[in-house]
Design a protein around this nucleic acid. Structure first.
Lengths: 348, 348
DNA sequence: AGGTACTGTGGGAGCGCTCCCAGGTTGATG
DNA sequence: CATCAACCTGGGAGCGCTCCCACAGTACCT
């Protein structure tokens, strides 16, 4: 690797030392001014600022990182299985939120896609290689070893979504249970009596929560959740199709479906159409996520919206806190749960 | 800003020096082994490798970057207007491609969202601050000053899409003209006689190219493009609706529409439905981009697929070349144009 | 006038690498 | 057996910054 790598910008740029010379002060003083230390007299500060302006000085962040032993950067890690799912706006919304919140900082955003075990290994080396001050972990599976690795390395980290009810790492999550519950309550409130659900993979906590929400709503309506009305899938369109077929076979007369993701709802909708059922007349539908898919379905799908961009922002805020002063061991780890909102469209 | 930033991992990690001591060699030698220099004897190399393994040594990339005057990182820059558009798979596909190609390198990916002028300013400082070796610029507008700034700074850069027919900066683009042409030829080949088009904003070269392709296909069929069959929009759904209404008004009997993006096609489709026209029986449709929207439309939309992920990969390849040895001034700048492919679905 | 307590300030000592030069080995050659 | 190139190798000299210690000044006490 490597070779003659060019240096483009930065070649011959002024250094701290040159600024100091120009301002007629010492290096330390310039550093103090740059970093906004209060222990500098106004006269000196002004002189330095002028020299900085005249020379067009920009601190070399690499040198700073080395000297200060920090990286001024955080990594956003996206593990493979999710990489696909994230054609959905979820992905870009998170990024947008993270980017927006980071913009006020002088931290940089490193994007890390982890596909293969080799890349995972490589990532572990990042961490050891001093490149980041903290890590944002998107959508981890229950058995993902990454969060624990980070904890062992004492690397500040924040999860989007938690792995279980007793997540030990700081996280930001949506109110999945509440969102699902309100969706199903809506369906029941509109007079539907036989509400089925298509769940995500139940080894994912998020899927479990949405199922819990479904059950809670059913119980709240004075009924008992029936196993024949629950089919689990994997958050994919094809999974949604399969699950819908299964449900239709078990309960041909169901009159509503709550799908734990819009994409699964889209798959289910196709099966419904093939079977000659109308939406929402025969079967009402509600999805989860409020993605573009929901808006473009026919009829447009009612869905549970998550505050995805806000999740990104919140993750950064929590991470900054962790970086500044890590929370005590098992103690009060910051955990944020953001509300969801039902977006009504025509699927009922 | 800043404060007591923690150092997490990396604290007390072994250094080059320690490895050297353990292996009983000098610093320089260890460095040579780490960087795969051939001028090291096998004996020595083995000894060093063993010491590295025993100590779990990982080079400190920050120190390396400072000493070698390079950053080992490239930036992917996404200007605001696009940030929205990119809820579409385009965005994540590019990222996926970039990530994949970068994985074989030891370059890191810095994601930079530019929303405000202030952030643009900040970005310019990055460049001066020695943080990246090169820049990947996504979807620049014709009047974007960034490419020229990069050129002035002699910062290697690659664009996705070009700003005009005479793009001076290296770029990777899709064959927009060819894709549009094949789409319209397909429509005509299926017997449609009155093919309209909804274009993107015509100050964007990509929109211009797709319109050119449309015209070329019409001419190839021995007809003359009619202005009443062209309506321009802005790549949004709402724009697609407006354009469709306009077209319908001007030419109520049109029997096909080529939309320069799937999202605009989705908008157009709604208007078509409201006006009682069936797709594809009354009006056939073809979109561009082959995004999720196309698959989920009713009926599923035939669309022109771009090799988006491959674009990301190609961008990285070109950038690496530029970093390794920048192409001469106006001379042979690398430019790659990737083929497109018509994906047939039910809209005809 | 001498002491104490602050502020401000300069600059040495690194941070952990890469670069590169000088010096030591080795082996082939005259 | 001396000579010279070719090859390895050690380690000094930075890269540009932050940290921190020590040394003024200045101000306010006794």
């Amino acid at each position: 690797m490597a070779g003659t790598r060019r240096h483009g910008a930065g070649r011959g740029r002024p250094t701290l030392e040159e600024v100091a010379a120009r301002a007629g002060v010492g290096r330390g003083t310039v550093s103090r001014v740059i970093n906004g230390s209060p222990r500098v007299s106004d006269r000196t500060r002004t002189a330095v600022e002028q020299a900085v302006a005249e020379l067009g000085y920009v601190p070399n962040r690499v040198a700073r990182a080395l000297a200060a032993n920090r990286a001024d950067a955080v990594a956003l890690v996206i593990p493979e299985p999710e990489t696909r799912l994230f054609a959905e706006p979820y992905f870009s919304d998170i990024i947008r939120g993270v980017g927006a919140e980071l913009a006020d900082t002088d931290l940089q955003l490193l994007l890390t896609l982890i596909r293969t075990p080799k890349e995972r290994q490589r990532f572990a080396e990042y961490l050891s290689a001093h490149r980041v001050d903290g890590v944002l972990l998107v959508s981890v599976h229950a058995d993902d070893p990454l969060p624990d690795l980070l904890e062992r390395l004492e690397m500040p980290a924040v999860l989007s979504g938690r792995r279980s009810a007793h997540e030990s790492v700081p996280y930001v999550d949506s109110d999945n249970t509440g969102g699902a519950q309100s969706a199903v309550e809506h369906l029941i409130g509109r007079g539907r009596t036989t509400v089925a659900t298509i769940t995500g993979p139940l080894d994912m906590y998020v899927a479990q929560c949405r199922l819990d929400g479904y059950r809670a709503a059913v119980r709240a309506a004075g009924r008992e959740p029936e196993p024949e009305l629950v089919a689990s899938a994997d958050f994919t369109e094809e999974g949604g199709r399969r699950a819908m077929r299964q449900l239709l076979e078990q309960r041909p007369h169901l009159d509503a479906v709550f799908a734990a993701s819009d994409v699964m709802a889209a798959g289910a909708r196709q099966v419904l159409r093939e079977s000659g059922r109308r939406v929402p007349e025969d079967v009402a539908m509600v999805g989860f996520e409020d993605s573009a898919v929901a808006r473009h379905m026919d009829p447009p799908l009612t869905s549970v919206r998550q505050a995805t961009e806000e999740m990104g922002r919140a993750m950064v805020r929590v991470l900054l806190e962790e970086i500044e002063g890590p929370s005590e061991r098992p103690a009060k780890r910051p955990q944020v749960v953001l509300p969801t909102q039902l977006v009504r469209r025509e699927s009922l």
